[in-house]
Computed example of a mutant assay.
Amino acid sequence: MLRRRVAQVFWQSVRRESDLATTSLILERSLNRIQLLGRVGQDPVMRQAEGKNPVTIFSLATNEMWRSGENTTSVAGDISQKTTWHRISVFRPGLRDLAYQYVKKGARLFVEGKIDYGEYTDKNDVKRQATTIVADNIIFLSDPLKEKM
């Protein structure tokens, strides 16, 4: 009898704490992932702000192609293309150094990471919006050693 009463009090206190936790802070899973396959637009640069960790930055171009006109299934249709440029930032120490050393303009890469929206002030004291891909993984689809030679 005493054991049952102790268990009942315990579960009531646990339930009360969990009810308080859910009302004050809702913990739910979310996902911020992106995968890009494209070509590097410029050789990477490494930057380091005062008191912050260094970062390797480069641009990656992805292309979207489609046929326009009446008959979009035939080879004769006009092909249109749109290129989107992405700013890639690599903060992870090992990956950052590899990217700086081996990523070259024109290389074909597969980049996985997350999207980060930020704000910065430019040289003219104007606030600007910036969208950055923070890379967690980079897969080289063209051999960086052959391209380096």
Rank of each mutant, 00 (worst) to 15 (best):
V111R: 07
L60Y: 00
N53C: 05
Q8E: 13
L37I: 11
Y100P: 02
I26L: 15
L109I: 12
G106W: 00
V9M: 12
D78P: 03
F140S: 01
E28Y: 11
A7Y: 09
S89C: 14
R47K: 15
A99W: 04
Y102D: 06
V134S: 03
G51L: 13
R47W: 04
T121R: 12
V111W: 09
K52H: 10
N63Q: 07
A7I: 11
G38T: 08
R108E: 03
S13V: 14
G113F: 00
W11P: 01
Q12G: 09
T131H: 01
I26D: 14
E17K: 08
T22K: 14
V40F: 04
A49N: 11
K146H: 01
V75Y: 03
L141I: 01
I34L: 10
M149A: 12
M1F: 12
T121L: 09
A7N: 13
R16C: 07
P144L: 02
Q101M: 13
S59T: 07
S18R: 12
Q101I: 08
P54W: 00
G77N: 15
G38W: 08
L37Y: 10
E112P: 05
L31H: 11
S74D: 06
G77K: 07
L27D: 02
R4M: 07
W66I: 06
V45K: 12
R15Y: 10
V126P: 04
L31E: 09
F58S: 01
T56L: 00
H86S: 10
I138R: 00
E119V: 15
D122M: 03
R29D: 10
F140G: 00
L20I: 10
R16V: 05
G77Q: 10
I79T: 15
L141R: 04
Y102P: 12
S74G: 08
S89N: 13
A21G: 10
V90G: 03
I57W: 00
Y102T: 08
N137T: 04
L25T: 09
L109G: 12
I139V: 11
R67M: 05
S59M: 01
L145R: 00
G77C: 14
N71V: 05
Y120C: 02
D43M: 04
N32W: 06
G77E: 05
S74R: 06
Q81S: 13
V75R: 13
I26Y: 14
F140K: 00
V134L: 06
Q42G: 08
L2G: 06
Y117C: 06
E50H: 10
W85F: 14
K104A: 05
I138N: 00
S59V: 00
T83H: 10
N32M: 09
V55W: 02
